[in-house]
Amino acid sequence: MNWEDDTMRITVLTVPDCPNGPVVQERITAALSGRAAEVELVEVTGPAEAERSGMTGSPTILIDGADPFGIVGAAPSVSCRIYRHADGKADGAPSVDELREALTSAGLPGSADDDCCAVDALDLVGRDGRGRLAPDTGGLRAVHQAVLRHFADTGSAPEAAVLEPVANAAGRTAPEVLAELAREDFLTLGPDGRIRAAYPFSAVPTRHRVTIAGGVQVWSMCAIDALGIPAMLGRDVVITSVDPVTGESVTVTSENGQTVWEPAAATVFVGRRGGCSGPAAEVCCDTLNFFTSSASARTWISRHPDVNGQIVDRSRAEEIGRRTFGPLLTSG
């Protein structure tokens, strides 16, 4: 292959059928965030070839021929390679953030999309750092939590009358509190004043269906919202969604703190359309979707030039969901 002198070269060395090969390629794609680089997958079939190529376990990542995650004295190997994150957790590939740091250290210029709409996937969901936890004043948090619990228990939005006792305890009416929650984008209301969404839940059908342990089914506003539900409720769930490009199903099963994604190559795109402000339901919820593969996600991105964002791998998507929605019902 002829490489351009000014183009970064990323080589992924794996043994045939390495289960972490596709994982690391997806994370590299997410870390690149649209930046130009030549990415090549090379299969290594024996110890001699591992020594020639610089492979110290599968997968090994070389950036312009150097291993940014290399350990001094590590021997050539065709065995599975284990990476340790900063928290000590073992993984079969570096995280997206670790890859992003390695690419930057190797001289890759910053993404052209590093603006207020795409600086951090968590901020895209978490209201630019403000989070989804309503203030504990004026009955806002109490009413908000009552709304979320009603969705989780029934699969539907509560009527204002159901919320009156909670709002009255703060010296307010339910419509007053709901209107303020809507102004601050903790939920959305229809023209009739009824709740249409309370992130992560939707009162109207979406492409993301969540079955909560016990049988209750709810709609979620987006892929990240769906992934945040088990963390928020502390319950097992099964998420069923549809890739907007291929029409194929994506299923995420969360059980006993472990998740299984089907297909295994599934990923999530986190983005925002248009300007950098406005209710999440209008500017980003319909762009946060599950995809059966990074290739499918890239196809969707190419068809929506008005959307800024990034592909995130499964662990990062779960982390964003957990950090965004996990505290909503545990904080008094």
Rank of each mutant, 00 (worst) to 15 (best):
N2Q: 07
D6T: 15
I10F: 05
T11S: 11
T11M: 14
V15K: 10
C18F: 05
R27Y: 11
A30H: 02
L32C: 04
S33R: 11
T45C: 13
A48Q: 07
S53M: 12
S53V: 14
G54P: 02
M55N: 00
M55K: 00
I63A: 09
D64L: 15
G65W: 14
A66K: 11
D67N: 13
V72H: 11
G73L: 06
D87A: 06
A90W: 03
G92W: 00
V96G: 05
E98H: 05
E101L: 08
T104F: 04
L108S: 05
P109Q: 08
V119M: 08
V119K: 10
A121C: 02
A121P: 00
L124Q: 04
V125C: 09
G126D: 15
R127F: 14
R132T: 09
A134I: 05
P135W: 15
T137W: 15
V143P: 01
F151P: 01
D153M: 13
T154S: 12
G155A: 08
S156N: 12
V162C: 07
V166Y: 03
V166G: 09
A167F: 01
T173W: 01
T173C: 05
A174M: 09
L178R: 03
A182F: 11
E184M: 11
L187V: 04
T188D: 11
L189Q: 09
I195R: 06
A197Y: 08
A197C: 14
A198V: 11
F201R: 09
A203P: 06
V204H: 09
P205W: 15
T206L: 02
R207H: 12
H208T: 13
Q217G: 12
C222N: 14
L233F: 11
G234N: 07
D236Y: 10
V237F: 01
I239W: 00
V245P: 05
G247T: 04
E248V: 04
E248T: 12
T253K: 00
S254G: 03
E255T: 04
W261G: 01
W261T: 05
A266T: 07
T267W: 02
G271M: 07
G271E: 04
S277G: 03
A280F: 08
E282L: 14
C285L: 08
N289C: 07
S293E: 02
R298S: 13
P305K: 12
D306S: 13
N308Q: 10
N308Y: 10
D313R: 06
R314L: 01
G321W: 04
T324Q: 03
